[in-house]
C-alpha cells in the first residue's frame, strides 16, 4: 500500500522538518521506493531471534569518578546563533 501524502506530512511533523509541497511529493516517491525495497525483510522468519542493537556489546561501562573541566560558559556560547547576558536566546515557547 503506497504511503499517502498525509502520512508523509505526519512523519515530517514528527521529524520536525518543514517541507514544501514539492518536497513532500518527492519524499512520498522516495519513501515508497525504500519501503517497497524493505518488503524483503517481511518475508524472513524471525521467530525467537534476539534483536542485535549493538555491533560489539559491552556491559556496565563505568566512568572513573574524577573531576575534569568541561567547556567554559564563553566556549559553550561561542557558536550560539543568539545569546544574551551569558544565556542562549531562544524563540518564545508560549503564546503572549
Amino acid at each position: 500500500m503506497p504511503i499517502t501524502l498525509d502520512e508523509v506530512r505526519h512523519v515530517a511533523r514528527l521529524a520536525r522538518l518543514e517541507l514544501t509541497e514539492d518536497e513532500l511529493r518527492a519524499f512520498q516517491t522516495e519513501l515508497d521506493a525504500l519501503l517497497g525495497h524493505f518488503q524483503d525483510l517481511q518475508a524472513v522468519d524471525v521467530t525467537g531471534v534476539a534483536p542485535k542493537p549493538h555491533a560489539v556489546a559491552l556491559q556496565n561501562v563505568l566512568a572513573e569518578d574524577v573531576a575534569r573541566f568541561g567547556l567554559t560558559r564563553d566556549q559553550a556560547l561561542a557558536n550560539a546563533p543568539k545569546s544574551r547576558a551569558g544565556l542562549f536566546l531562544v524563540p518564545s515557547i508560549r503564546e503572549d
Binding site: 534476539a50 534483536p51 542485535k52
Partner: peptide
C-alpha cells in the same frame, strides 16, 4: 515491522 525486525535480521 521495521526497526525491531531489522535488528533481528542483523542478528541472523
Amino acid at each position: 515491522a521495521y526497526y525491531l525486525r531489522a535488528q533481528q535480521i542483523r542478528g541472523l
